[in-house]
């Protein structure tokens, strides 16, 4: 292990040098852009008060209309666009962030009646592509440290369930963020951001123009009044489609749950599973119209057992609200007879 000794020594030197330098007043563009894995979250200077999650200049908070559910964690999302650069609108999809930009997402749960930060994940847009890194907060909430191998932490969810919360390791980051071999952001698609927010983002000069969006994902809190299909397809896009799409981790399943996919068979309607194994739960099709209780999709969403549960990562408990939205949609789909369905 000669290498580890050599690099260990180099790191100690670097850490000492860094400790001697003054705390950055603004975001540290060097930490984002240059090689190396910053050891603490504070090195980036994304926050003026990290424990309170008060962002620094040019670090813009945002929310997604329909977010990814992670055991009920509260999520605080920020996008950083460096001075002198701009994001570019790219249709309804992901906004095109420049090299030097970063996405920051903090996961928190309530503890003793207060918000308790668990981890902050950063996505750094470097010249050679995006890099995903997880930082785990200490109990004192004074610092978050890099954890490339991830961690397991005891957490109580808002539903009152005590779980073993998994901070993903660096490889697991890529399992969700990987597309055609590269790491990419998932969340900030124009169609999943509010028109208001995009207007303000453009007014601030952070993006070249407001992306045109014809069909926006519903706002999750308004799901009861949203059309069943839009609410469910929005949920599946935000929670499943980063893997279940061509070029991503679950591409071999042939299931494509992206919002823009319109082929009924590709989104699972009367589609046989390919490699589901016992995850199929003795059911024949991913989605049986009118019959959520006969659909593999909802069966796997309703499970928290490894090997059956979907999503495979970032889930220790069942998202009852998400499940209800998908069940409502499947129940309302016109029933069809398997032989005539053509699959």
């Amino acid at each position: 292990m000669i290498r580890s000794l050599v690099f260990g020594a180099a790191l100690v030197t670097a850490a000492v040098a860094f400790a001697a330098s003054p705390k950055p007043a603004a975001v540290n563009d060097v930490a984002i852009a240059e090689a190396g894995l910053p050891r603490t979250l504070s090195e980036y200077g994304f926050f003026t008060d990290a424990a309170a999650q008060i962002p620094a200049v040019r670090v813009t908070p945002y929310r997604l209309n329909t977010p990814l559910w992670s055991n009920g964690a509260e999520k605080l999302r920020f996008v950083y666009v460096p001075k002198g650069t701009q994001a570019k609108a790219d249709g309804e999809g992901l906004i095109d962030l420049p090299v030097g930009a970063a996405l920051i997402k903090t996961f928190a749960f309530q503890k003793d009646g207060k918000r308790h930060l668990i981890e902050t994940r950063v996505l750094l847009h470097r010249a050679d592509g995006w890099l995903a890194l997880p930082y785990v907060w200490n109990d004192e909430q004074t610092e978050a440290k890099l954890a490339v191998a991830g961690a397991r932490l005891p957490v109580t969810t808002p539903a009152g369930e005590a779980i073993d919360y998994r901070v993903p390791n660096k490889n697991q980051c890529k399992e969700c963020h990987g597309l055609n071999g590269a790491v990419i952001p998932i969340g900030p698609k124009a169609r999943n951001l509010s028109a208001d927010w995009l207007d303000r983002f453009a007014d601030a000069g952070m993006i070249d123009t407001v992306p045109a969006v014809a069909h926006r994902l519903p706002v999750w809190e308004d799901r009861a009044s949203a059309p069943a299909e839009a609410a469910a397809r929005g949920y599946l896009d935000a929670n499943c489609a980063h893997c279940h799409r061509p070029g991503a981790t679950a591409s071999n399943s042939g299931l494509d749950l992206r919002w823009e996919q319109s082929d009924p068979h590709a989104i699972g309607i009367m589609k046989h599973p390919v490699a589901a194994g016992r995850g199929a739960g003795n059911l024949l099709y991913d989605i049986v119209p009118g019959k959520p209780d006969q659909s593999i999709l909802t069966y796997r969403m309703a499970s928290s057992e490894a090997g059956v549960a979907m999503p495979e990562l970032g889930k220790a408990t069942v998202d009852r609200d998400g499940l209800a939205v998908v069940e409502r949609w499947i129940a309302a789909l016109p029933q069809m007879d398997a032989a005539r369905a053509g699959h």
Binding site: F7, G8, V12, A35, G36, L37, R39, V148, A149
Partner: peptide, 28 residues
Amino acid sequence: MTALALCAASPAYAATHEIAAGDGAGER
């Protein structure tokens, strides 16, 4: 996390990482 977890540069030679069974084997 060990110092090993932080190295980012590439060495010019291959390394052998020996992992024994026992406590924390999964993480190691």
